[in-house]
């Protein structure tokens, strides 16, 4: 019985460590993808003036953004003739992002829906640049966190499990 209990404790703490590592990796990946997404949107708005519907459709088909699950929901919401702001916020609410990103990062990404498509090219680019600046700083922070804590969480899970089991025994 004790042996089974010990195995469960070790496994649980090992998984908790792995989950933290996964979150650290995903956080950088998500922020990087949103940065690339905004760069893509910036180019399309500035040089092609592609309408939002076509733009989101193109992004949704783009294999580079296949891990960004918000795009599919965003596109489907637009198909249902929901406004950009509602489509965007609903997409984020249904995305994995909300479990991975910090509250501040989520708020910043949510804000995108409030101005996307609703103003002139200059204003759109100004807003995109502001968001990009914020997200790039956060990407650096996320990469720093990943470098700092990835190995710790990875090993700490299993080691703390073993330590706990030794204490119990």
């Amino acid at each position: 019985m004790k042996l089974i209990g010990s195995a469960i404790i070790i496994l649980s703490l090992f998984l908790a460590g792995k989950l933290s590592c996964f979150k650290l990796s995903k956080r950088t990946e998500f922020i990087r993808l949103v940065i690339d997404l905004l760069e893509f949107i910036k180019t399309e708005i500035n040089y092609k003036k592609t309408t939002m519907f076509n733009l989101v459709n193109n992004l949704n088909k783009n294999i580079y953004f296949k891990n960004l699950d918000i795009l599919d929901i965003f596109y489907k919401n637009l198909l249902k003739q929901k406004s950009i702001e509602i489509s965007w916020s609903e997409a984020i609410a249904q995305s994995q992002m909300k479990y991975i990103l910090n509250q501040d990062e989520l708020i910043e990404i949510l804000k995108i829906g409030s101005w996307l498509g609703s103003s002139s090219v200059e204003e759109q680019i100004f807003n995109i640049d502001l968001s990009l600046e914020y997200l790039k700083q956060n990407l650096l922070r996320a990469q720093g966190d990943k470098n700092k804590y990835y190995k710790i969480y990875n090993n700490f899970g299993i080691l703390s499990g073993i330590a706990l089991v030794i204490l119990i025994w």
Binding site: I45, K49, T50, T51, F53, S83, I84, S120, V121
Partner: peptide, 16 residues
């Protein structure tokens, strides 16, 4: 407002 957004296809920049 909603009609205007629809007319612009939610892309005011494209119709500026």
């Amino acid at each position: 407002k909603k009609s205007f957004e629809n007319v612009c296809e939610y892309s005011v920049y494209a119709y500026q």
